[in-house]
Design a protein around this nucleic acid. Structure first.
Lengths: 337, 337
DNA sequence: GACAGTCGTGCAACCGCTTGCATTAATTGG
DNA sequence: CCAATTAATGCAAGCGGTTGCACGACTGTC
């Protein structure tokens, strides 16, 4: 079926090792021989089998990238950045989607394990313990989770959440709701922790919820029942869904309820009202994660204990989905009631 | 580093072939032996190396899925559907993104070739000839392109474009512009062909353009200069960008200009005005494509000539971005001028 | 003209696993 | 009680490559 190194060897009258060297160490073979071999290879349509090569060299030049939900616009920019960074190092990225399912996540890491030089798990839903275990089976780095001993890049959502809450407080909101994310999410816990600390008043936590538009839409009524006048959502997608739900329920945004998202996905600029949100540096995260993973592969075993961690800042982007609350406040240009 | 079949064999006192059979043909090994081997394997943390297995069996249980731009919301539903369909057959999907670059596309097919049981190219940008050639190197199926001899699933965008144009005509539009897509796109050519045929009046073609929001935004002025009162865009993303651009230029949608997209991505329901568009059955396409590819792998070589083609219908979804044009028309409730 | 040093190539083992065949032991039937 | 099955395992070749080592043919040096 497929043409192998042996076919090329036979056609060009040399030993297979010479053919092999023609492709992986050209300087070791005489230029005449080389061109003859290349000609035969070309003519036969020979392509080196990367999997077979990897078996012996241990390098595949592939990187696995696992995300919770490829349909969430948060991920594509990260994926793209990772791809272009990987390309600079001659690597390819293979993306897999877990559908927010931790079991699928584990399965995918294992499936990828021997076919890639390392895997990147973005927004993992697995337990730390499992991640730790998997990291022995394959070089592994995480994004959006901080785990001792596992290299990772995190975006400072705690800071972002604090900024968001402070923004709402300064607008005079006192009843703030937090619409949290999915169960396994480290980010969600961080946000909750930080938001709770920042909110001087009541903070109603609603969740866990699926981190999607419908997840946000579904809690709109609960938000209203809770009497919240401002909401911080786990991500933009939920914030957007929530706004839809609030409007459908007759509430105005931001007049009746202010909504803040997190991520600053492209979509947030397109909805009406435009979403106030916490911008996360996803592209930088993707690049950093790839670098980290490739570095991990190089320093094989020698000094693994110095696990790198990258910490990226976030920032609040104020748009149109937040406005003055009912209480006294000191927003720029705001009016004390 | 990694624990292999040999380690397990040594630990359990059997030959490696017995270990191998324990995992790939359990019924051939005595149940006592089997449980002993499994225990040792478990304890050592043995995981079969799928790549090595594939080298000899020829089956990887992976499928490669190549898309032009993972950030385009058109793709994720298709990818998701493909994943769930693949899962039913115990396969994993690895996604790769080409950034709309035909060269990258070719490179990725080759990189994936020996690591997957087949590759699916969605919305290819390569030439037919190249696809044809690649299909000899790896089982291959395409989506959104019709090529003789290559299995594929297409969505009937020609019909969709016709419906869209007829809708605009019935609203009284006579100056219609077509904002076309990227150069290598079969879909774009189909749309153009069909739209041209359907438009009884002038059809100004603007393009090729990058199939993104900015691609649409960039041609807003050109659309206005051309004097068009209605536009059919290559996809929703462009349509949405275009609307942004039109509004920024002071035109109202749909009062001054009607806009129709294609794809019916989720986003189209969220923008204001909500987008009138041609819905394409992306999930069905993803499923069909996976089935096709797996079927292709089974019938190895024997009767390859009966290449399957799947043809899926599209439909027009009328929302708020289209309205009466300046000319005489017969739209429901419309007024003749 | 003998010697050391290059250069180019072949040989063979090996990466981790599968599989057809041979071998042995246990079981069955006549 | 012996021949014929059957079940369980071992043996070894091989999937498509890579790579350390050995070997022969040149080259240049004194």
């Amino acid at each position: 079926m497929s043409v192998t190194i042996r076919d090329v060897a036979r056609a060009s009258g040399v030993h297979i090792s010479t053919v092999s060297r023609t492709f992986s160490a050209p300087h070791l073979v005489n230029s005449n021989t080389r061109s003859r071999v290349l000609a035969c290879a070309e003519q036969l349509g020979y392509r080196p089998n990367r999997a077979a090569r990897a078996l012996i060299t241990g390098r595949t030049y592939n990187i696995g990238l696992i995300v919770a939900d490829i349909a969430n616009p948060f991920f594509p920019p990260l994926i793209k950045a990772a791809e272009s960074q990987a390309r600079k190092h001659d690597h390819h990225i293979f993306v897999a989607d877990t559908n927010e399912d931790p079991a699928v996540e584990e399965e995918l890491v294992r499936a990828l394990a021997k076919q890639v030089d390392g895997v990147l798990v973005v927004s993992p839903r697995m337990s730390n313990a499992l991640i730790e275990q998997l990291s022995h089976e394959v070089p592994l780095a995480v994004v959006n989770r901080q785990i001792a001993g596992i290299p990772g890049v995190v975006m400072d959502v705690a800071q972002g959440a604090r900024l968001a809450i402070e923004h709402l407080l300064s607008l005079g909101h006192t009843d703030i709701a937090l619409v949290s994310g999915p169960r396994g999410s480290w980010t969600s816990r961080e946000i909750r922790r930080s938001a709770s600390a920042a909110a001087r008043h009541k903070l109603t936590v609603i969740g866990p919820n699926p981190p999607t538009e419908v997840g946000g839409l579904a809690v709109a009524e609960e938000v209203l029942r809770a009497g919240a006048t401002a909401v911080l959502a786990y991500n933009d997608l939920m914030a957007i869904g929530l706004i839809e739900g609030l409007i459908a329920a007759g509430a105005r945004v931001p007049q009746d309820v202010s909504v803040v998202g997190i991520d600053d996905i492209m979509l947030s600029r397109l909805t009406r009202p435009k979403l106030t949100t916490v911008a996360t540096p996803t592209a930088a995260a993707g690049r950093a994660a790839v670098d980290m993973l490739l570095a991990l592969g190089d320093q094989q075993g020698d000094d693994r204990r110095t696990t790198a961690h990258v910490h990226l800042q976030t920032e609040l982007v104020i748009r149109d989905s937040t406005g003055p609350g009912p209480g006294p406040h000191s927003a720029p240009g705001g009016v004390a009631s």
